[in-house]
Write a protein that binds this DNA or RNA. Structure first.
Lengths: 221, 221
DNA sequence: GAGTACGAAATCGTATACGAAGTAATATGG
DNA sequence: CCATATTACTTCGTATACGATTTCGTACTC
């Protein structure tokens, strides 16, 4: 473990529990309870929660306390839209740095995803999906953009574990879009084209969700 | 003032001092000193600083303390590039909601900027520039994206007050690009076109800076 | 004279304690 | 029986205190 700082430790622990679904959206984060649970004082816990607030993982209200944010479909929509933008940019910026070996790895992951569609394993599918995109991001030379992408993923993770958003036909399309994206990168396509493709990939998932849930529409392009 | 929470008060105060340049980049933020200065205890100050860290305005190191981040040209570059992306998106998403009255206000501001070029008033020019873009952003329906834009502006503000980055010819071009952008919006151009224009507007400023400073190039498109 | 070891000062990190604000339960009057 | 006021409880907000870590200055040795 060797975190050193207890504040850091609290931050990591609470974040992990939000992302893995132990604390689902709406869960009330009581300082004293978490402090006792982690064997530390309330001060580091409080600090950790304020940091998580800045990342958008929890909502904090004065004299009321913190709750795990999420649930709200509108919030999901905002997050997905933002992610489509920063993810698209991150992918485009990474593209020139992606070599054949990375492409091969990504393609292997994508084939595993295709496999998952046979046995209907949405959990593994989701994990592989993250792996796939991680391969395409990780080389992004701009750490700020990469950070924004990670924050978006964390937000989605906290939502996913509670209300599992899964749109039937979408998974198949997704795998095909991945392959198309890989070919673009392989072919050395321009940054603009790659960005557009990556952005539409996520926007399509959002659109599918909106169509299914009949939620209020929003211009996702 | 009626801030209510002292933590909030400390947050606002320190943030303001960073943005207005009282605490310039590299400034060492000593908890006890700030606490005494604000007439509060160190705990709220500490919390405030951790929040500012999450926004990227300060850098925090364990057992060492916080310093106002900035200065580094690389950081400037990352911030501008990120801003070009989120700003472009925010402008495009706002565009359909911008009415003739907003256009008129923005145009008036832009003409004031043109005026500033005559008497060479870079400080006012910068302020008006922020006003101009604010008019185009404020209506962005996605609060997350809007928040990212604001964070970027804050980062730039902290840089600007110390090392004033001003590229000679750039200001004139900038005003012209503003006018072009307004015409696009007026004409009801597509979101894609508006986004590209807004993005290039900022990217051009970055490119001008890079060309002047002979810093290592980066693919800004 | 340069480098290292030691010690003192400064600063951060966390715990504990108490006061403030909000919430829920209960009692009381209509 | 319902509405409202009061009380008790929960939880947050901040101050103070002390231990841990780093940094800087000084003395000592080679």
């Amino acid at each position: 473990m060797a975190t050193g700082s207890k504040s850091e430790q609290a931050y990591a622990a609470v974040k992990a529990r939000i992302v893995d679904g132990t604390y689902s959206p709406g869960y009330r984060l009581v300082l004293a309870a978490i402090a006792k649970d982690l064997g530390v004082s309330v001060v580091p816990v409080r600090e950790a929660i304020r940091r998580l607030e800045a990342e958008g993982l929890v909502t904090f209200e004065r004299n009321i306390g913190a709750t795990v944010s999420g649930i709200d479909p509108t919030e999901y929509l905002y997050t997905m839209q933002t992610l489509s933008i920063v993810e698209g940019a991150a992918t485009a910026l990474s593209a020139p740095l992606i070599g054949p070996a990375d492409i091969a790895r990504a393609r292997a992951v994508n084939e595993d995803m295709r496999e998952c569609l046979q046995h209907f394993d949405p959990v593994r599918f989701t994990a592989l999906n993250q792996d796939f995109h991680s391969i395409l991001f990780e080389q992004c030379p701009n750490p700020h953009i990469l950070d924004l992408v990670h924050r978006g993923w964390n937000r989605l993770a906290s939502l996913r574990s509670s209300t599992f958003r899964f749109v039937p036909g979408r998974a198949h399309e997704s795998v095909d879009e991945h392959e198309a994206l890989l070919r673009l990168i392989e072919a050395g396509a321009g940054a603009e084209e790659i960005e557009k493709s990556a952005r539409r990939h996520r926007a399509a998932t959002l659109d599918a969700y909106l169509a299914q849930s009949n939620a209020g529409s929003l211009n996702t392009r």
